[in-house]
Write a protein that binds this DNA or RNA. Structure first.
Lengths: 202, 202
DNA sequence: AAGCCTATCTAACGAACGTTAGGTAGGCAA
DNA sequence: TTGCCTACCTAACGTTCGTTAGATAGGCTT
């Protein structure tokens, strides 16, 4: 058990995390000042430091939480599609990753957009958990490869990077208010598996 | 007069742009201070302001240049593949965009990574040129669609977003020092056209 | 030789930054 | 009722930020 039910104690802390993650997502880590985060929460900048040791600490917690949201989504998709056909399993995991990006708070999207330029010590702390998440995808794609769902000459490493990169890149253009997440998931799944080429014309 | 041949005059200015773009790429726009940029160039911070009006101005010039590099690469690919088969034309333009990202200075990569969180007035200034570049891709994909190279039910808008997003996302993991750009271009072209699915197993 | 222009410098400005010290008010426990 | 603990506050710290003013040194023009 990692996530407690929201109590009065954690409410203030979680409010700070929510607003900080949203601001980091919109403006970037450096541009979002502690004072602006505090203002969004409705408190003074100094009060942030009752809950977190530093601004870097705040970012670290947010990046970890974003990764946790992804990982939980992935695991849920795995158990939900145990024994299902390969393409269905892939579709479910793609949909799960996109749901983590757009339907479970700003944490995953913030992770995706701010990790690359995060302070080095923060990045270093996050890397193991990040590797673990990527390993989940490697295992999934390897399963699909050995079961014959993917072309035998598929390079799993690059395929994983392109798939995750493609999904994450959607934060640049996909607006969950305007588009359906199911449509997006279907689009990416279809394009990943079958591509754009017209099979009738070669 | 907009672009002069490189003289001793513009050399200092271009040095500043190079170092600034590299730092913006590595650390982000806000984290890279004018003093650090000046230090990388080998001058004092105040000297930057002999060449640029403000830090925002510096970013704006860099973003524009990144877009110009992309556009020139696209146009070169277009003229180089006039009358060529559709898939070859697509491959050439993918390769051109990736070359702009990795082989023509840090400008295009910096554009891709910093545009989303750039100050709003800077973003506003850039948008028209950005729309023009995306329109080039829309035209190309529409050509491929009407000539039957792409599946008739291809949605060109999302396809363009996914293709550009996928290529741009490679800046997160592709290292031009370690990997071949031709390999990357081939990988993305192949995956875009044909996907990962094993055609022998449905 | 005189004057100007370009490119840089030193020095400093006010503002904003992350952060700390110390205080206060309210709830819970003894 | 007293005392403590949590969650905030006000005030301020030293640092760094983007930026400006003004000086200087070297080269080109006349």
């Amino acid at each position: 058990m990692t996530i407690a039910e929201p109590t009065v104690e954690t409410a203030g802390r979680d409010r700070i995390l929510d607003e900080a993650a949203s601001l980091f997502l919109k403006q970037g880590y450096e541009a979002a000042s502690v004072r602006r985060i505090a203002e969004a929460v409705g408190m003074q900048a100094a009060s942030i430091y009752h809950h977190f040791n530093s601004k870097e600490d705040l970012l670290e917690v947010i990046l970890h939480r974003g990764l946790e949201v992804m990982t939980v989504a992935f695991d849920d998709a795995s158990t939900a599609t145990l024994g299902a056909p390969g393409r269905e399993r892939l579709a479910a995991h793609i949909r799960a990753h996109l749901a983590a990006l757009y339907e479970n708070g700003p944490y995953t999207a913030t992770h995706v957009t701010t990790f690359r330029t995060a302070p080095e010590n923060v990045r270093t702390t996050i890397v193991p958990q990040r590797d673990a998440y990527e390993a989940l995808w490697t295992t999934l794609l390897n399963d699909l490869l050995t079961s014959g769902v993917l072309t035998p000459d598929t390079a799993v490493g690059p395929a994983r990077l392109m798939l995750l990169g493609g999904m994450n890149a959607s934060v640049e253009w996909f607006d969950p208010q305007r588009g359906s997440l199911d449509d997006l998931a279907h689009l990416i799944t279809r394009q990943t598996l079958y591509g754009l080429s017209n099979p009738l014309k070669n």
